Simulated scan of single mutants.
Amino acid sequence: MNSEDRRQRFEAVAPAVIDAVRRFLARRTDPSTADDVLQDTLLVCWRRFDEILPVRPPSQGGTAPDAVLPWAYGVARNCLANAERSRRRQGRLLARVWRLDRPAEVVPAPDGPDDELTAALDALRAEDAELLRLWAWEELSPAEIAVVLGISPNAASIRLHRAKQNLREELRKTGDAAGHEESTEGSRP
């Protein structure tokens, strides 16, 4: 039998199997898991389709299409059991990692967020704000920022310099020069 005939035979049976197995799984698990298990079930059904629905008609020892559904339920049941085992293994692994390597606790700033800085960053172009966050918060060098953004290190350095200037200007507008005082050197009182 050629692959086109096999595909047509599968497509003739699949709609009834899909709807029935979807309902079967919906009664047993959450929607996301049901969708994943349905896909796994259909894959197994496709791979083993010739075993469950031979080319021969039922009168000659072949399997009737109605007999496919119980077999598909069995496949779905096994696929669901595999998904649940996998979820339990992931949970155990996560618990083990948590015990062995807890993430550092994030300590909030003593005075809370800097409203002027937040407002100044919000006023910048999104690209400039991201550059500054990568530099200040993630402590990346211009070369590392270049890798993150997919640009050259020289371009990252230039853009970072401009972003710092733009931030400085925004902070001046709000009356906060980021803790820096204007130089009065050379000016007369």
Rank of each mutant, 00 (worst) to 15 (best):
residue 29 T to M: 14
residue 30 D to G: 01
residue 31 P to N: 10
residue 31 P to T: 14
residue 33 T to H: 06
residue 34 A to P: 04
residue 34 A to M: 11
residue 35 D to V: 02
residue 36 D to K: 03
residue 36 D to L: 05
residue 37 V to Q: 03
residue 38 L to T: 02
residue 40 D to H: 10
residue 40 D to L: 07
residue 41 T to K: 02
residue 42 L to Q: 07
residue 42 L to P: 00
residue 43 L to F: 12
residue 43 L to D: 03
residue 45 C to N: 13
residue 45 C to S: 11
residue 45 C to M: 15
residue 46 W to G: 01
residue 47 R to H: 08
residue 47 R to V: 12
residue 48 R to L: 14
residue 49 F to S: 01
residue 51 E to Y: 11
residue 51 E to I: 07
residue 51 E to W: 02
residue 51 E to G: 07
residue 54 P to D: 06
residue 57 P to R: 07
residue 58 P to H: 10
residue 59 S to D: 10
residue 59 S to A: 15
residue 60 Q to M: 06
residue 61 G to P: 07
residue 62 G to Y: 00
residue 64 A to R: 01
residue 65 P to C: 08
residue 65 P to N: 08
residue 67 A to F: 09
residue 68 V to T: 08
residue 69 L to E: 00
residue 69 L to N: 03
residue 70 P to Y: 11
residue 71 W to T: 00
residue 72 A to G: 01
residue 73 Y to L: 08
residue 73 Y to A: 10
residue 74 G to A: 15
residue 75 V to G: 03
residue 75 V to E: 00
residue 75 V to P: 00
residue 76 A to Q: 05
residue 76 A to V: 04
residue 77 R to G: 13
residue 78 N to Y: 05
residue 80 L to N: 07
residue 81 A to V: 11
residue 83 A to L: 05
residue 84 E to F: 09
residue 86 S to T: 11
residue 86 S to N: 08
residue 87 R to F: 09
residue 87 R to C: 07
residue 87 R to K: 15
residue 88 R to E: 04
residue 90 Q to F: 14
residue 92 R to Q: 09
